[in-house]
């Protein structure tokens, strides 16, 4: 560990707990993510991976423990919540594009409304982002006219338009047809290489192995094991991790 222990830790989660009614979805989850780090979370379905990253931008409210994003503690303070949300972009499994708006309007909406950016400026940025994700020609279409892969790339561009410091990915390729997965993963890889801090829930082991700095394995609401990809795929410590890996590889 470097001497600069916490200075560059952009996400700090300490003993985060979350209940749905009587069911405990997260049990004392602790994780620290450094700036520019790419962390992939894997685990069987229902293990709490999605809930965990949804707590980080307050789509779910955690009931115990602490979450600090870029030095801002996540509490009931609405100002802090707003700040954290505009610093953390999120990409969903079901894309969640706004069907009544064009692709361009989808991307410019938040910069104009939240960042109070000028419309022309926002459109310029949006076109730049569409170029970056490789579909500038689709700007004036509605989401329904796009393929799944294209929609997900628009969703990534939409999050990037808020120039977030962190990107959260909640199973971004799970709803895609196999032939479209690669185009989304390529965009994500490019993003990782550009130095974005990323927290990714995914089942794509190839992506995890290649892009992740660290892999987190979750099961039954607990963080079971954390390690580098190398460590993970060759030398997993925990029985549950081994079982999971043997089932999916």
């Amino acid at each position: 560990m470097s001497e600069n222990e916490t200075a560059d830790e952009i996400i700090i989660c300490q003993d985060v707990c979350k209940w749905f009614g009587d069911f405990q979805a997260l049990k004392d989850c602790s994780l620290r993510v450094k700036a520019q780090e790419v962390v992939v979370i894997i685990g069987p379905s229902g293990s709490g991976k999605s809930t965990f990253i949804r707590c980080i931008n307050r789509l779910e409210e955690h009931q115990a423990g602490d979450i600090i994003v870029d030095g801002i503690p996540l509490t009931r303070d609405v100002r802090n919540i707003e700040q954290i949300r505009s610093e953390a972009g999120m990409v969903f499994q079901q894309f969640n594009l706004f069907p009544h708006l064009t692709v361009l309007e989808n991307i410019t909406l938040a910069p104009i409304q939240v960042r109070k950016m000028k419309k022309e400026e926002a459109q310029e940025t949006a076109m730049g982002l569409l170029n970056r994700v490789g579909i500038p020609e689709q700007a004036d279409k509605h989401p329904g006219q796009l393929s799944g892969g294209q929609q997900q790339r628009v969703a990534i561009a939409r999050s990037l338009a808020m120039s977030p410091k962190i990107m959260l990915f909640d199973e971004p390729t799970s709803a895609l047809d196999p032939e479209m997965i690669k185009e989304v993963l390529d965009v994500m890889q490019e993003l990782a290489e550009s130095g974005m801090t990323m927290l990714v829930v995914t089942h794509e082991m190839g992506f995890a192995r290649e892009v992740a700095d660290r892999i987190v394995f979750m099961d039954a609401g607990e963080i079971v094991e954390v390690g580098t990809p190398e460590h993970f795929f060759t030398n997993a410590q925990h029985d549950r991790t081994k079982l999971f890996l043997s089932q999916i590889l």
Binding site: N57, R58, R85, S86, G89, N96, H100, L109, V114, M162
Partner: peptide
């Protein structure tokens, strides 16, 4: 309107008022 629409609006940092006016009502009324 699917829950995802509310969540996407929230995640983008839109306030409750902004997401109702820009995202939810236009779709619901249509």
């Amino acid at each position: 309107i699917p829950r995802g629409q509310y969540e996407a609006a929230q995640a983008l940092g839109l306030s409750a008022y902004q997401s109702t006016i820009n995202i939810i009502l236009p779709q619901a009324l249509r």
